[in-house]
Structures are given as C-alpha cells and as structure tokens.
C-alpha cells in the first residue's frame, strides 16, 4: 500500500506515503454529482425566481422550458448516480461506506469528532491523520449531504410527478403521498427550495474544509478525489498512526 517511507528524507528525493482510498466509481460519482448539483442549484434558483422576460413571440422562445429541462435532466442524473453510489457502498472498499454509515456507536468515533472540532476551533495544535474521511466530515456528510440529497430526490420527484401526471410512476410513487404529507403542492415547493439552500451551504463548507485541510493538515484531499490516492506530506508519520 504505502510507498517507501523511511530513508528518503533527502530534500531532492522526498517521498510521501500514499494510500488508495477512493475507487474510480466513487471519484466519477463525486464529480458527476458536483456538476449535477451545480446545474440543479442554478436552474432551480431561476425556476423560483425567473429571469427577466424574453422579447418576441412565445412561439419562438423556450427559455424557461430549457431551464426546466436542464433541471429535470440533472435531477435524473443526480438520482441515478446516487443509486449507483449506494450500490457501490455495498461492493466497494470500506471507505465507500463511510458516507452512509458513520460508526456513531463507537466511542472513538465521537472522540475523533471532538478532536476535529477542537482542531477547527484552533484549540488542538495537531490534526489527526485519517485515511478516509475524518469523523467530523463523516458526520457532516451523512447528515447534511446524504439526508439532504435523499430529501431533494424525494421532493424533487414529487414535484416532477405533478407535471407527468396521475398514472405515471413519478406521480404514483412520489407525488401521491408526498404532497398530502407536506400539506399541498406549494409547501413541497417551499421545502424543496429550503433544501436547495441546505445543499448550497453544505457545498460551501465542504469546499472550504477540503481546501483548508489540504493545506493545514498536511494530507491530500482535492487531488485524492481525482487520483484516488491519499498522500501524507509529513514523512515522519505513517498513515493509520492515529485513527
């Protein structure tokens, strides 16, 4: 797994221990998902707050139709890739499961969460090294991202089913029970929009934390999601030292 670690402390020949964390399907899913959420958030924003009217005859314009089409298409992509990602949680390596099943019944997990909080509050001097996600990230991903996405997929298909109409699977499996659950259609629209902001806020924190940790905790995060390998820049510490 890890490459040479010991003697090569020479400046010109410095080496970094590396661990293969993110398998290809996880990486592909991550970037497709990021793109889908970007498209969904932008088009979704405009669906609630439409851009200024286009001039000319209605016959020759389809701007709002294209915005909605992009939203629906990206929604399908998000939902299908989310299902694939769940499948991969079953067949992939153990890091593929972290998102869905944070080990909340283990004391050491919560110890890790507290340490990570201290690290973010500038109380702890040194971050711990983690091969996969750190415990705080696991928790945030699970609560904000996984459940946020499930909420958006369910309410999203419920709203989409209103357009496809009764008798379609979207309506029968989603709209028919989601609309009365929330009260009525307008309530589902409102909460779907709150869900958008929830995921936007998640994305802000996620991107910031990834960049910061990449720099501050001396381990690769951004490039790991491209190559799959997590590298540790402190040659004196092996991965798994403190987990």
């Amino acid at each position: 797994m890890s490459s040479e670690t010991g003697d090569a402390r020479d400046l010109r020949m410095h080496s970094e221990p590396a661990v293969y964390v993110y398998e290809a399907p996880v990486r592909i899913w991550h970037w497709v998902n990021a793109l889908a959420i970007t498209v969904l958030a932008i088009t979704g924003y405009f669906i609630g707050q439409p851009p200024p009217s286009v001039p000319g005859e209605a016959t020759f314009n389809f701007l709002f139709g294209y915005i909605r089409f992009a939203h629906f298409a990206a929604g399908y992509v998000l939902a299908i890739f989310f299902l694939l990602r769940i499948y991969w949680a079953f067949v992939g390596n153990r890091h593929a499961r972290e998102l869905f099943l944070p080990p909340i019944f283990k004391a050491e997990f919560w110890d890790g969460v507290i340490h990570e909080l201290k690290w973010y509050l500038f109380i702890a001097k040194e971050p711990r090294k983690h091969v996969g996600h750190n415990p705080l990230a696991m928790l945030a991903m699970h609560i904000m991202f996984v459940w946020g996405t499930i909420f958006m997929i369910i309410t999203g298909f419920a709203l989409y089913g209103e357009g496809t109409g009764m008798g379609t699977w979207q309506y029968d499996y989603f709209s028919s029970w989601v609309l009365p659950l929330f009260g009525q259609s307008m309530d589902v629209h409102t909460w779907h929009r709150v869900g958008m902001w929830w995921l936007v806020i998640f994305a802000m924190i996620h991107i910031y934390a990834a960049i910061r940790e990449d720099i501050m905790s001396r381990q690769s995060l951004i490039s790991s999601m491209i190559s799959g390998w997590r590298t540790f820049r402190d040659p004196n510490r092996k991965p798994g030292d403190e987990i």
């Binding site: 958008m196 902001w197 936007v200 806020i201």
Partner: peptide
C-alpha cells in the same frame, strides 16, 4: 425560502 437561504448562506460564508 430565499430570505432564509441567503441569510444562512451569508452567515456561513462570513464564518468561512
């Protein structure tokens, strides 16, 4: 929803 969302996003952005 947008008032809630922009306020929350602005708060988080400032915190970040």
């Amino acid at each position: 929803a947008d008032a809630v969302g922009t306020a929350a996003a602005a708060a988080v952005g400032t915190a970040v």
